[in-house]
Amino acid sequence: MIRFYRVSKQFGAFDALRDVNFQVSKGEFVYITGPSGAGKSTMLKMVYGAVRPSHGKILINGTDITRMRASGLPSLRRSMGIVFQDFKLIPTRSIGENVGLALEVIGASRDTIRRRVDAVLSIVGLRGRADELPHTLSGGEQQRVSVARAIVNDPSLLLADEPTGNLDGAMAIEVMEILQTINLRGTTVLVATHDGGLMQRFPYRTLRFRAGRLESS
């Protein structure tokens, strides 16, 4: 599914990642952890093509994305869903419109969008709230909208960058349970987090980074 082969990334004189090698199989749930500045987010950004490595190869489903042209990125991103710590919801769009955005960009009909949005809002426990604006929701609910948007086009890979970073304990557990459910439906899930408590409560394979190096896998 995902393979990093001797991947390094320098930002000027700073080594964000150094000679990173690992592999994630289809259907796995994997944590990427480590202290701030360890390279977790950089690694995730490389998976969705927002950052290109300075050296090495990244294979996603057998395709070397380091050789991919910018015009190829949209199709790569349509095969994955991304959840951010700050939710990245459009404040002036309703919840339904925010979730439907991922389907809109691929030219889905309005009927399909409505049907799929209702379905994923049910999965994340927000059924019937499609017409509300994001600011009317709690932080946990907004993150669930973000998860709904990430899974609305049924991706094979879900990336979550500190998805519980802005949430309190109960809300964080709710979001993790949703991610776990999505994984049980066959989606590969990569979660960048430094929340040790959650990793203990939901134990999965962990890639531990420190100062840009993969310490343990």
């Binding site: 949209p74 349509r78 991304i82 990245k88 955005l101 948007r149």
Partner: peptide
């Protein structure tokens, strides 16, 4: 700008 960034992240093409 935020909306455009999100569009890019969910797979919108440049022409879209």
């Amino acid at each position: 700008r935020d909306e455009l960034e999100i569009q890019k992240l969910v797979g919108a093409t440049q022409s879209y």
